[in-house]
Design a protein around this nucleic acid. Sequence first.
DNA 1: GTAAAGTAGTTTATAAAATAAACCAAATTA
DNA 2: TAATTTGGTTTATTTTATAAACTACTTTAC
Lengths: 95, 95
Amino acid sequence: MFKELDPILHSQLRLAVMSLLIGVKEAEFTYLKEKTNATAGNLSVQIQKLKEAEYIEVVKQFKDNYPQTICKITTKGIGAFETYVNALQDYLNIK
Amino acid sequence: MFKELDPILHSQLRLAVMSLLIGVKEAEFTYLKEKTNATAGNLSVQIQKLKEAEYIEVVKQFKDNYPQTICKITTKGIGAFETYVNALQDYLNIK
DNA sequence: GTAAAGTAGTTTATAAAATAAACCAAATTA
DNA sequence: TAATTTGGTTTATTTTATAAACTACTTTAC
């Protein structure tokens, strides 16, 4: 009846980040921060968790003298997201 | 863009309980435990939280000599569930 | 009738997660 | 050159989720 909900994705901020990345395929830390209204600290932690899970790739570089963190969803991440959305259907009574 | 996800509902077990209660309108503790595969302890705690939030009503009585806990969703609970489901759409990219 | 096992939970303790606050390093602006 | 801003990270605190232990019976088996 109720499938397990991937705990990595069942988090408001991480889910929002994944949702954004699915759309754009690549995004800056600052962009994600703005779109999600998260604090930088929280976002930093959650991005690391998504990276550890290999749901996203993170590249750190410099742009116009400032550090820049770029995030990109992985194939694994896309799959996990789809599985999560699917599992959720059971909970939402979307028949 | 991303609405707040009600933290009371954004929990796997509490969401499952609410999902079940929306369907049947009234259910025993043991039924919920069986359907959700939760441990009794976990379920007990989560039911109390739903009750404190006034998303469900809980009646304790005896049936065939044994204690029986009956849960019933409230109007407030139904509203909260619908709001939650709605908010989630943004995160799931269901266009 | 009493010991063992089962029912239906609750309470307490522990682990994991989310969040906020503090901090760091460098760049910019005044 | 001091203050402020950018773009973060790290650490500490609070909140959640979960598991383990416990309570209060009832039923079954001897």
